[in-house]
């Protein structure tokens, strides 16, 4: 939890008015919208279009900054001439995102780290700079949410530009950043908080395992039958990674006709056998146990070592989407049990 720069109180109806104002100004507004039973971020013109009840969106927040596919270069060879390359601008229209969840916002921090590590990714960076995130505390979680075990839980404000805590007759807004302050100027009827507002209770996401125990066990168990046991049922698809808010691997492909075409960046995933296949035919991760292990190690060990934070925020999407019924919480609980058993015997 971070101390907000400013706290404001707004009456019911504030959101409707804000969206109206932003749309009149021509600002792009994205919010969770339900279509055919699935809730995803889509452009809205009015707050009425927003989904009333949703635990989280199907596709994670990351897609707004790191889309599933995007063109990063175009090339063309006019008849007989040289190949001409042309750069492509990131589609980075100023955007306000309303209704993002604490887990997904915390995941943006993970993406920030990666996309500004040794190279500043311009496509990501431009969109990031032009996007304002309005996060909302979760009043409901489902059985697969486990943010309380790995991240700040359902009321975490970190990562939001403005964080909304619904109250009985409106909301308490926590203004977290400069971008948030700028947005707050468009909010009508906002009064400074008196300090005795009572936000409605957030969803209970109690701790289901002790996350501090995970890394120690991973450090010592690269080679272990555990990985075979947990991976046999995995099908090796991309569902869990593509829909994970922190997974950020991508593939680069050229698509062209006989004369010209484009270079694209697409989501990729370490669960695929092809992911690490070398041209020689050698595959350093030759089986699903090494691939499942990598996905978990990356989130709970390698990322921690490199960047000092975990790369899992407990959104539970990988559990919801897995066709094989793989469940990362069960795997993590098993690890903490194994850890307890080893430390107990030591």
């Amino acid at each position: 939890m971070k101390e907000p720069e400013q706290k404001l109180v707004v009456p019911n109806g504030w959101l409707e008015a804000l969206v109206r104002k932003l749309r009149v100004q021509g600002t792009r507004v994205l919010a969770p919208v339900e279509r055919d039973g699935a809730v995803d971020f889509r452009e809205i013109n009015s707050a009425d279009e927003m989904a009333a009840n949703y635990v989280n969106t199907r596709v994670p927040l990351k897609e707004i900054l790191f889309p599933r596919t995007e063109t990063i270069l175009e090339f063309d060879q006019p008849s007989g001439g040289d190949v001409v390359f042309s750069g492509v601008e990131a589609n980075a229209a100023p955007t306000i995102v309303i209704g993002a969840r604490p887990c997904d916002l915390s995941a943006i921090g993970v993406l920030d780290t990666v996309f500004n590590w040794d190279y500043h990714d311009t496509f990501y960076g431009q969109r990031r700079a032009n996007t304002t995130f309005v996060g909302v505390a979760c009043r409901e979680a489902d059985g697969n949410c486990f943010c309380g075990s790995v991240a700040g839980g359902a009321g975490e404000n970190e990562g939001s530009d403005v964080f909304v805590r619904p109250t009985a007759d409106g909301a308490l807004l926590e203004i977290m950043t400069e971008r948030g302050k700028k947005l707050a100027q468009s909010i009508d009827d906002a009064a400074p908080a008196a300090g005795k507002e009572e936000p409605l209770p957030v969803a209970a996401t109690e701790e289901r395992f002790d996350v501090e125990k995970i890394k120690g066990w991973l450090d010592d168990h690269f080679d272990d039958d555990f990985w075979l046991d947990v991976s046999l049922k995995c099908l090796g698809c991309g569902a869990c990674s593509y829909l994970c808010p922190t997974c950020h691997c991508f593939d680069i492909v050229d698509e062209s006709d006989w004369r010209g075409g484009e270079r694209r960046r697409n989501w990729d995933c370490c669960s695929f056998a092809l992911f690490t296949l070398h041209t020689s035919g050698h595959n350093p991760r030759p089986d699903q146990q090494s691939r499942c292990r990598n996905r978990l190690m990356h989130k709970f060990k390698y990322f921690v070592e490199r960047f000092g934070r975990r790369a899992c925020v407990g959104c539970g999407r990988c559990i919801r989407v897995c066709g094989a019924g793989q469940n990362i919480v069960n795997v993590l609980i098993d690890i903490t049990r194994a850890e307890a058993a080893t430390s107990g015997s030591a």
Partner: peptide, 26 residues
């Protein structure tokens, strides 16, 4: 989203290298 879960779960999709993974040519 091209996650290929449909292919990976299908008992009949057993090709060692799926046509979508062949890139010479694509």
């Amino acid at each position: 989203i091209r996650c290929y879960a449909c292919r990976q779960v299908c008992p009949m999709c057993y090709c060692k290298r799926c046509v979508v993974e062949k890139n010479i040519p694509q």
